[in-house]
């Protein structure tokens, strides 16, 4: 899918993605010529249709996690997976970010079927950006930027 600025005849560039509420998925595109922005709004049904392909609208920024689509879409049992402790903390040589009490509480509400993977994704997101502490605000930003609609 490409967006074309009709006035400039230029391809618009992906700018950002958001979940403004009620299951809506929004992706903004900006014309590099005139600066005009447009937003693509998808209802939950349309969003699922695309995500069922296992692709991310706006592109993928982090590596795929093992059984990522399965864990994000199946109603699974709480104890289906045992995520390696070191793995959950994040990957690479970067310092492991800390979790604020509020963020820990929010993470605890994530279904066990997907929790270990979600924890890893947030940790990687924070570490890559040099964020020392993961807070609910950081989690919101990561959800929006990484396309974690189902998680």
């Amino acid at each position: 899918m490409k967006f074309l600025c009709v006035d400039c005849d230029e391809q618009m560039q992906f700018a950002e993605r958001q979940e403004p509420g009620d299951g809506t998925f929004a992706a903004a595109f900006r014309c590099p010529g005139c600066g005009r922005s447009v937003a693509l709004l998808a209802n939950p049904f349309e969003t699922r249709l695309v995500s069922s392909l296992g692709v991310k609208i706006g592109g993928r920024t982090l590596d795929a996690q093992p059984l990522e689509q399965v864990r994000a879409t199946v109603r699974g049992r709480e104890d289906a997976f045992v995520d390696d402790g070191n793995r959950e903390a994040g990957s690479g040589e970067r310092p492991t970010p800390a979790w604020s009490p509020d963020a820990k509480e929010r993470l605890a509400r994530v279904p066990g079927f997907v929790r270990g993977m979600v924890k890893r994704i947030y940790a990687d997101y924070a570490a890559e950006r040099g964020i020392a502490e993961i807070t609910p605000a950081v989690m919101d930003r990561a959800r929006s930027e990484l396309g974690l609609e189902e998680m």
Binding site: A72, T73, V74
Partner: peptide, 24 residues
Amino acid sequence: AWREPEAEQFVWRGTLEVGVLREF
């Protein structure tokens, strides 16, 4: 069973099942 949305699942259920096979 799949997580939300529950309506019109017939449209994307087959694609999700192939996705499970692919990830397996």
